[in-house]
């Protein structure tokens, strides 16, 4: 009987090894270990054995069963792995195919520049002040030391709606309004970005609508040297750490002294190139110490308070930064233009 069992074991293991798939294996399992299988048959004949032989054969039969089961398990794992591999092989993708695009737009380059400047000044403790784009003559001009008939009004040709209402020509009226709200108490520390309008013919360098960002600080002991410090921080952040700045005397009716700020050319580092018109310097913004008349008109005591103000054009800064050659691009909104600023 033992021989018979031994033969069955060899036969079963042989069949197991021949199995090609899990189905074959299942058939082998049923065939040898099932209730009607040959081992069960053999065990049914145990009754005829002597009392001494019975436990020996019984133990051997269990051993054979276990061996077959072990082989079955082993083969099962093997076949399952093979099946998974085969399945995965069939599932493989061409990973070089393009992925599913995620819809994404981006800010307009002017917004990108304005936001960058806003964030810089916010980090320096400024807040953002806003005001109407349709303004009164008073806030746009008179409160800024530009009375009616002042020759400096010629510097800005304005879109008047009525005699006293116009499209603001600068964001400075926001400064006047903000100072007024402070009722003579400092500190004031704001920037005011926004759209402004001037009666210009649109061409490559002029636009009847454009943006401005102005800044204003009013407090006790505000000095021109502080303005220099703020502007230098701005220039380095916007145009690179190794930028130098230069202040040149200038004139604006609402500041005295007035200055213009140049930065050392970021293209040629001051050697002279087409961007800086061979001068090594690029004009970036106008600034100055707030004119005592402007302070007084807004309710500040100019003996106690001083302040500085500055103003710049985001279009100009964007044009310089990105090498844009025509201001009209900003307002045409050609999608091929807009899409270029996805990382701006």
């Amino acid at each position: 009987m033992k021989d018979r069992l031994e033969a069955l074991k060899v036969e079963a293991i042989g069949k197991i090894n021949e199995s090609q798939d899990l189905k074959d294996l299942q058939a082998v399992k049923v065939a040898y270990l099932g209730k009607k299988g040959p081992i069960t048959e053999v065990l049914k004949g145990m009754g005829k054995l002597s009392a001494e032989e019975r436990p020996v054969i019984g133990a051997y039969a269990n051993e054979v069963r276990d061996s077959i089961q072990k082989e079955l398990d082993k083969k099962q794992i093997e076949l399952e792995h093979a099946a998974i591999s085969e399945k995965l092989a069939k599932e493989s993708l061409d990973v070089s195919l393009p992925g599913r695009p995620v819809k994404k737009g981006n800010p307009h380059p002017l917004t990108a520049v304005v936001t960058e400047i806003e964030d810089l000044f916010l980090s320096m403790g400024f807040t953002i002040a806003e005001g109407p784009e349709v303004e009164t003559d008073y806030y746009n001009f008179e409160a800024l030391n530009l009375p009616k008939g002042h020759p400096a009004r010629d510097m800005q040709d304005s879109f008047f709606i009525t005699e006293d209402i116009l499209l603001r020509t600068q964001t400075s009226p926001v400064q006047a309004r903000t100072m007024e709200k402070h009722e003579g108490q400092g500190p004031v520390k704001i920037i005011s970005p926004g759209k402004v309008y001037r009666r210009d013919n649109d061409d490559a360098t002029h636009s009847h609508q454009f943006m401005q960002i102005e800044g204003l600080v009013v407090d006790k002991n505000v000095r021109l040297s502080d303005l220099k410090g703020v502007l230098e921080t701005f220039a380095k952040k916007m145009f690179g750490e190794d930028r130098k700045i230069r202040l040149r005397p200038s004139f604006f009716p609402f500041t005295e002294p007035s200055v213009e700020m140049d930065i050392s050319c970021f293209k040629c580092s001051g050697k002279g190139c087409s961007i800086c018109k061979q001068t090594g310097w690029i004009e970036i913004l106008g600034a100055g110490m707030v004119h005592p008349n402007v302070l007084e008109m807004a309710g500040f005591d100019s003996k106690k308070y001083t302040g500085f103000a500055f103003g710049m054009g985001p279009e100009r800064i964007a044009m310089l930064k990105y090498g844009i050659d025509d201001i009209r691009h900003f307002y045409a909104n050609d999608i091929r233009f807009l899409k270029q600023f996805k990382n701006a």
């Binding site: 916010l122 807040t127 500190p187 407090d219 002991n221 021109l224 502080d226 220099k228 410090g229």
Partner: peptide, 19 residues
């Protein structure tokens, strides 16, 4: 103006920020 030094505002630090 190139002889004017560069300084930083003396006023107390106040938080900036968006409304």
């Amino acid at each position: 103006y190139d002889r004017i030094p560069t300084t930083y505002l003396l006023s107390e630090a106040r938080p900036g920020g968006l409304t």
